[in-house]
Design a protein around this nucleic acid. Structure first.
Length: 439
RNA sequence: GACCCGUUCGUCUAUCGGUUAGGACUCCAGAUUUUCAUUCUGGCAAGAAGGGUUCGACUCCCUUACGGGUCGCCA
């Protein structure tokens, strides 16, 4: 019998990283075992549902690459996949409970009568958890149908998992105490419960609960901040799950191959944006140039920079230098524009160096004489200029970098020389000369 | 408050009774790159506390502390 998992968000806010990770784990388990991953929209709270939230769910899952085998748009044998469209089904299941005498009316709503006994959840992550339902004060009979006739989460969630033949329910630990309620319902229906796995929550760096407004909480913010989906997936997978090895940079296929519920931790994990960024850089560096170029292009365009014909060569020059894609425009700015704004601190740092007079004098002529222009030829001219003055070529590197880019950090000097071209190099050397002498 | 779950470097984690408690992020130092980033090497840094059990506990049990979760006609 094949594994069936589901992600069942309610469209009431933005897609949260916690929800995204829940979806990821469900997706990974299904893919690992060749099962099915179902997307079900739990939109029973009409007052709080919004179309934007629904778009955020679809968009977020798609961006992360978590495709669903059954659910909205793709449909499937157990639809519809919006709870708001499953009324008839719920009515039928509710009637069963009425026939069994397990519900009673209370102030216009209907409550499910719990059996008063201890209930044990056999959780794949938490182990055996027993909650005593004999203590009625702590576990009052729950409302499953509101006085307006609509059904409550616990009821529809259980009915749908049964109807959709879900075999594994992976969800946040905040649902652990709900599970006995669900078990009671399933028992009343005379059905077998799915396997449960409650995963720990994601916390803020300070240990507080991560909510919608916290940094890094909304998955929708990641794309425009320049995160790569594969990096976010990788980072999220490692929050609360361990591959039990020292490696940690995994592509999605590798995660699928390695994933197992056994590796899931029981303690909540704090979200570390720094490590997430580091991981993004690791993935960015591993992309092939064409893919990186395609991913970086929109950021450069959005920044209003001219995108040259040979953009790929420019993107390649900064591929290992950025953590997030939104750093690309700033990294490329001096290469794409005619004029540069030199960082005063960078200029100050090199001003007093012995090599500066060479840059302002002989090197300008040496560069001007290079024909045809190439990074190699330019470097040879630079070496010759240095040698003539009794300096090592290395002494010219940093000042030249500052002269050409206005910064102390950036692409490889050879790339700068090559991409800038002769005219711009000579011009910037002249500008640099006036900058260091006049101020 | 009651009931659950949890607690290893600042953070993410490995360890399933015997390890100099390992790796990663961050930070620091050095090497390589004639330059920056990358990469490499080294360093700082941990078993919440107290009791047991055991020849031996981070690992098993109990208590306390702390953290998180749940106690809705929200999901």
């Amino acid at each position: 019998m094949s594994i069936r998992t589901r992600f069942a968000p309610s469209p009431t806010g933005y897609l949260h990283v916690g929800g995204a990770r829940t979806a990821l784990f469900n997706w990974l388990l299904a893919r690992r075992h060749g099962g099915s991953f179902i997307l079900r929209i739990e939109d029973t709270d009409e007052a709080r549902n919004t179309p934007e939230a629904l778009d955020a769910i679809f968009g977020g899952l798609r961006w992360l690459g978590l495709d669903w085998d059954e659910g909205p748009e793709v449909e499937g044998a157990h639809g519809p996949y919006f709870q708001s469209q499953r009324r008839d089904l719920y009515d039928a299941w509710f009637d069963q409970l009425v026939a069994l005498g397990r519900v009673y009316e209370d102030s216009g709503a209907w409550r499910f009568r719990f059996e008063r006994k201890p209930l044990t959840v056999h959780d794949l992550v938490c182990g055996e958890v027993t909650i005593d339902y004999r203590d009625e004060s702590n576990t009052p009979d729950m409302v499953i149908k509101r006085s307006d006739g609509s059904y409550v989460f616990h009821f529809v969630n259980v009915v749908d998992d049964l109807e959709m033949e879900v075999t594994h329910v992976i969800r946040g630990e905040d649902h652990l105490m709900n599970t006995p309620k669900h078990l009671q319902l399933i028992e009343a229906f005379g059905r077998r419960p799915p396997q449960y796995a409650h995963i720990p929550l994601i916390l803020n760096p300070d240990g507080s609960k991560m909510s919608k407004r916290d940094a890094g909480a909304a998955v929708g913010d990641y794309p425009r901040q320049g995160f790569l989906p594969q990096a976010v997936v990788n980072y999220l997978a490692l929050l609360g799950w361990s591959s039990k090895s020292d490696e940690e940079i995994f592509g999605i296929d590798e995660l699928v191959h390695r994933f197992s519920l056994e590796g899931v931790n029981r303690a909540p994990a704090r979200f570390d944006l720094e490590k997430c960024k580091w991981m993004n850089q690791q993935h960015a560096m591993r992309m092939d140039v064409a893919a990186f170029t395609a991913a970086a292009r929109p950021f450069v365009e959005a920044a209003g920079l001219p995108v040259p014909e040979r953009f790929e060569a420019f993107a390649a020059a900064v591929q290992t230098k950025v953590r997030l894609l939104d750093e690309v425009p700033a990294a490329l700015d001096f290469l794409l524009r005619d004029a540069i704004v030199a960082d005063p601190q960078a200029v100050a740092k090199v001003r007093g160096l012995d090599a500066v007079p060479l840059l302002c004098g002989p090197l300008v002529g040496a560069f001007d004489a290079v024909a045809p222009w190439s990074a190699q030829a330019a470097k040879e001219a630079m070496a010759a200029t240095a040698a003539a003055a009794g300096l090592k070529p290395g002494a010219l590197m940093l000042p030249l970098r500052v002269a050409l880019s206005g910064k102390t950090q950036g692409p490889d000097l050879a790339d700068i020389l090559e991409l800038l071209g002769k005219d711009r190099c000579v011009q910037r050397l002249r500008d640099f000369a006036t900058a260091v002498t006049t101020s």
